[in-house]
Design a protein around this nucleic acid. Structure first.
Length: 417
DNA sequence: AGGCATGATTACGC
DNA sequence: GCGTAATCATGCCT
């Protein structure tokens, strides 16, 4: 009631405005008879209060009458003003928020993934980029990519149809509420500004729903990506030949198993894998070898023999018996046994009878043994360390001591000639 | 199914 | 940028 008296007080000035409502003889009569604006307003309010007690038709008629009352615009504006000052001004503070950074992030991601934005091939570019970034082997699947694209297109379609649905619902709801409020503004104090605010509130509600949609779409894309494009998920073992090539290089460069960039490229080409895969392989190999030399001993022996056999064969073919015991007297060979003790572990094991070989390999083993004697300086490097300590630990400049790679075709175990 | 092997990734140091 | 060490995730064998 306190409010009411304030309103009445506020209206006291307005009521005196010379606006005789000729369409409403009743009010004219009352004003004439009472001569008091306050009483006039009180009368109006009484009529408003009494509306609920009347029948529908009567109420409608009364509403219409009140609507046309000359006091109505003034009363309306004052009530709006009061409302504005009390309730809405408090709310207004937190309304003007800046564009949500989270929704911007989601938008950017969806754009980057090819879900939102223009159609044009959609996520295929993103897929290719991701595959390239993952260093995936070139032989892996266009099938998987098309599968990925199909799934991405599906997500995209769902996203867009949902988005459209939300937008439509939002505008429908907004229109509905606006019409309702406009309608109601004839009978209760609702300013256009308030309608605007209400629209803003509705939009925010819907945009939070939209954000959820975007978020779940992002999640779906991430899952899809991880399933199809994460290199670890589609890890395939290298084929036997590739592993052999890599192992040959590794064991024949055991003292310094750090292939140069050119050697890596050559190995990559030979194995049908990427340079970064070669790097990964050597990284893994070094660390695993170092961790458990014993486990790799047999493998090392095997490759030493293989290398020796190859070397012996090539040497025999090339030099036709003049110097049969020194197959690797060349100066620039990539994996030659005579080089700086590369196969130290292999040779050590050979001397120590760590494994058995077929009789056909015996001559080559003998050759190796001979080679050991010729390179006697390495015999005291008994097998605790995988490489001479100064080589492994002195990592100041590994590339500078990397064995030279000769002709491109000589990356793996052949002799340098 | 469980364990080992293996290719890739990540964090960190230089 | 490269190497190491640790770790992850998958493949493969028993």
């Amino acid at each position: 009631m306190d409010d009411q008296t304030r309103i009445l007080a506020g209206l006291s000035g307005l009521a005196g405005l010379p606006q005789p409502d000729l369409g409403d003889p009743d009010s004219v009569r009352k004003q004439q008879s009472l001569g008091q604006p306050q009483q006039d307003i009180g009368d109006i309010l009484q009529q408003i209060m009494a509306i609920t007690d009347e029948s529908l038709d009567e109420a409608q008629a009364r509403k219409h009458a009140l609507n046309c009352h000359r006091m109505k615009p003034a009363l309306f504006s004052v009530l709006c003003e009061i409302k504005e000052k009390t309730v809405l001004s408090i709310r207004g503070i937190q309304e003007e928020d800046p564009p949500d950074p989270q929704i911007m992030r989601l938008d950017n991601m969806l754009l980057a993934e090819g879900v939102s934005g223009p159609e044009k091939g959609g996520g295929s570019a993103a897929a290719a980029a991701a595959a390239a970034a993952a260093g995936g082997s070139p032989n892996d699947g266009s099938i998987e990519h098309s599968d990925y694209r199909a799934k991405l297109a599906q997500i995209r379609q769902i996203y867009h149809s949902e988005l459209e649905k939300y937008e439509q619902a939002c505008s429908e709801f907004t229109n509905h509420v606006m019409n309702l409020l406009r309608e109601q503004s004839r009978t209760r104090p609702i300013s256009p500004k308030e309608i605007e605010r209400m629209v803003g509130i509705i939009h925010r509600k819907f945009s939070s729903i939209q954000m959820q949609l975007k978020q779940s779409t992002c999640e779906a894309v991430m899952i899809l990506r991880s399933r199809f494009l994460d290199a670890r998920r589609k890890r395939r073992n290298f084929n036997k030949q590739a592993t052999e090539v890599l192992n040959e290089y590794f064991y024949s460069h055991l003292s310094n198993p750090y292939p140069s960039e050119e050697a890596k490229e050559e190995l990559a080409k030979k194995c049908g894998i990427t340079v970064s895969q070669v790097s990964n392989w050597f990284g893994n190999k070094r660390i695993r070898y170092k961790k458990n030399i014993g486990k790799f001993q047999e493998e090392a022996n095997l490759y030493a023999v293989k290398t020796a056999v190859d070397a012996a064969n090539v040497s025999a073919q090339a030099s036709q018996a003049n110097s049969p015991a020194t197959p690797n007297s060349g100066s620039s060979g990539s994996y030659s046994l005579s080089q700086t003790g590369d196969t130290y572990f292999s040779l050590h094991s050979l001397n120590g009878e760590a494994f058995s070989i077929g009789p056909s390999l015996q001559p080559q083993v003998d050759t190796l043994r001979h080679a050991i004697h010729l390179t006697a300086g390495y015999e005291d490097l008994s097998g605790s360390a995988p490489y001479p300590p100064n080589r492994l630990d002195d990592s100041t400049n590994p590339s500078s001591i990397t064995s030279p790679v000769g002709a491109p075709s000589s990356v793996h175990s052949d002799t340098s000639n």
